[in-house]
Amino acid sequence: MSNWHKVCRLDEIPLRGSRVLPHEAGSIAVFRAADDHVFALRDACPHKGGPLSQGIVHGHRVTCPMHGWNVELDSGEACAPDHGCARRYATRVEGGEVWLEL
């Protein structure tokens, strides 16, 4: 059975910004990059658990507001030289609606 869920309209997420989706397994940060690509990561930096949703989005990366780690939005991997990974969720955008695989 498919686990795809509709979470919001694309235009409800600010460009180069994010929204937070509360989730039983921990909040999910849903990002919208400048090129309208949408990504979803567990809203916890692999460093010390800072809320990635609150970071500055640039390219396909976000900078954690806590200690400045950069995290790749498509994989959840921390950028070198840091190591760590935030769980990622598959996303798709259809007809202006954002879907997540939960």
Binding site: N3, H5, K6, V20
Partner: peptide
């Protein structure tokens, strides 16, 4: 925060 997600059948999942 975003409201609870809706599955492909249009059902809202507050429990998630």
């Amino acid at each position: 925060p975003l409201p609870a997600p809706i599955d492909i059948n249009g059902e809202r999942h507050v429990e998630l």
